[in-house]
């Protein structure tokens, strides 16, 4: 790699053990760098610690040992520079779409008029004009996921952490959301870590795919995805795509 790329995130020997009646070793010494504006995907079987790792990067969990550095500074807790999109529904059901989108800005102390402007732009970006005053219960699963992604983007975080964001959606909606996310990323260029068990989703969106072993989670293999962007439906059926898919499935199968 000739181009000099800045390291945005560094994970060094991250170990995590869930305490309990039987201690569960979820992560077993993971070291991983994520570069600025890189789209990284982590795939692995259920229980391979992928979610644990991004929760540690988000600051929701403390690693049992090891360290995570964000722009050189150790992560000590959650913060708006690392936006997080959850597996489950996480937009606030008691707030309108508008208030959900503006929440991060409100927390940041952005004045109401400025907030309104940014929210209006986000609403346009995700195509939800007319739904500004609606409660989340009036939205479909795909729409509310998009609101959640937009809510995180409102404060313009340097890093996006996506924890199986489309796992609860049906296949058709999921592929539509992947296209939207791909477009968003082309436009905004952020450092992204996507956790997913969907290998195709990982290849379609990422620059690099990291495969985890089953519990305890360790990095099994890294695969660089050098498919041209912007990617489209054609990409999904190109020989290069299918070859990547085959090789990653082989790695998972050999676990």
């Amino acid at each position: 790699m000739p181009e000099p790329r800045r390291r945005r995130l560094e994970m060094r020997d991250v170990v995590h053990v869930y305490e309990g009646k039987t201690a569960t070793r979820a992560l077993d010494g993971v070291s991983l760098d994520v570069h600025d504006n890189e789209f990284l995907a982590i795939v692995g079987p259920v229980g391979s610690g992928k979610t644990t790792l991004v929760r540690i990067v988000a600051g929701f969990l403390r690693p049992t040992s090891g360290v995570v550095l964000c722009d050189g500074a150790p992560v000590t807790g959650p913060g708006p520079e690392r936006g997080y999109v959850f597996q489950e529904e996480a937009i606030f059901p008691w707030m309108s779409v508008r208030d959900n989108l503006g929440f991060g800005l409100l927390a940041k102390g952005v004045v109401a008029s400025e907030r309104e402007k940014i929210v209006a732009e986000l609403v346009r970006l995700i195509g939800l004009e007319g739904y500004e005053g609606a409660y989340p219960k009036e939205l479909s699963g795909g729409m509310s996921k998009m609101v959640e992604v937009a809510r995180v983007l409102a404060t313009d975080p340097a890093i996006l952490l996506l924890d199986e964001p489309f796992g609860l959606l049906d296949a058709q909606t999921r592929s539509k959301m992947q296209d939207q996310l791909s477009l968003l990323w082309e436009e905004k260029r952020k450092t992204v870590i996507l956790v997913t068990h969907d290998v195709e989703e990982a290849i379609y969106l990422a620059d690099r795919v990291v495969v985890f072993t089953p519990r305890p989670g360790r990095i099994k293999v890294e695969v660089t995805v050098d498919l041209p962007r912007p990617r489209s439906l054609e990409t999904r059926f190109s020989p290069a795509f299918l070859a990547l898919k085959r090789s990653i499935w082989k790695e998972i199968g050999r676990a």
Partner: peptide, 8 residues
């Protein structure tokens, strides 16, 4: 967690 990670 969502609120905290949004900086609240």
């Amino acid at each position: 967690e969502a609120a905290k990670s949004l900086g609240a």
